[in-house]
């Protein structure tokens, strides 16, 4: 019962303030702990070998607003560009940073609901960083995050242009997002406690700049192809630009 009251109060607070925060951690540092004189870079590319499964048409007729906006939309889980470049792969430093703590970006990450799909489909944020969730559609959405380590939430976005800000309290790769109104809407958010992550674009590339010398586990996550990881070592001021992840059809 107490939990129910707490939930009601939390929802009321969210409704009044337009934002949700769940961070109870001590404040992060304001300066970067990495010595720029010795910092190195890890870069690489993610590719796909084989024939990518064709996109599946999305039936949006349960909501005329969506059907009007996105007629003929398809869901393309495996997006392959030129030379096999694989898009929407979340690549990040999984291990090797020890106890280093990093400043939280002051710029909010944005997750939009546009054309009745989440944009972007894959996103990375830091623990404590504001994530602005926007509804750009002329219809209702609910944003339902289903994390394991962080707190689950489900917020309504009944009005076009509505925004909420959310922050995650714990590192978690990945947090699935869905919309229960429109069952086809899916997004994944990687939550990390450092800035060394990225989502591959059409060229499949990724770059982590400003890493201290050391040995790291770098992992690449894809929503349907799974994960791959490899160990990468960089020395002082070294750039290792040939890290390659190759996914194949499952």
């Amino acid at each position: 019962m107490l939990r129910l009251v707490a939930v009601v109060l939390a929802l009321a607070a969210a409704g009044c303030g337009g934002s949700q925060s769940e961070s109870n951690a001590p404040p992060p540092p304001t300066t970067n702990p990495v010595d720029p004189a010795t910092a190195g870079t890890i870069a690489g590319r993610v590719t796909f070998e084989g024939t990518a499964p064709p996109g599946q048409p999305i039936r949006m007729d349960s909501d005329p607003n969506c059907a009007r906006q996105s007629s003929g939309a398809t869901e393309q889980q495996v997006m392959v560009g030129a030379n096999g470049a694989l898009q929407n792969v979340f690549v990040y430093v999984k291990d090797g940073l020890g106890t280093l703590r990093f400043p939280v970006p002051t710029v909010a990450a944005v997750l939009d609901q546009k054309g009745c799909v989440y944009t972007p489909r894959v996103l990375g944020v830091q623990v404590g960083q504001a994530m602005e969730i926007v509804n750009s559609d002329p219809t209702l959405h609910n944003v339902h995050a289903v994390p394991v380590s962080n707190r689950e939430f489900n917020m309504g976005y009944p009005i076009q242009g509505m925004k909420h800000t959310h922050t995650f309290s714990t590192r978690e790769v990945m947090v699935p997002f869905k919309c229960d109104v429109h069952g086809w809407m899916r997004a994944w958010v990687g939550v990390l406690d450092h800035p060394y992550y990225g989502v591959t674009a059409a060229d499949g590339g990724f770059t982590f700049e400003g890493l201290p010398p050391g040995t790291y586990t770098v992992e690449a996550w894809h929503e349907s192809l799974g994960t791959q990881s490899q160990t990468v070592t960089i020395g002082a001021s070294e750039t290792k630009g040939d890290v390659a992840f190759v996914f194949t059809a499952t």
């Binding site: 349960s62 909501d63 005329p64 607003n65 969506c66 219809t139 209702l140 009944p158 229960d180 109104v181 429109h182 069952g183």
Partner: peptide, 8 residues
Amino acid sequence: EKWVGGIF
């Protein structure tokens, strides 16, 4: 008019 998708 807002009874769309799963809301219906």
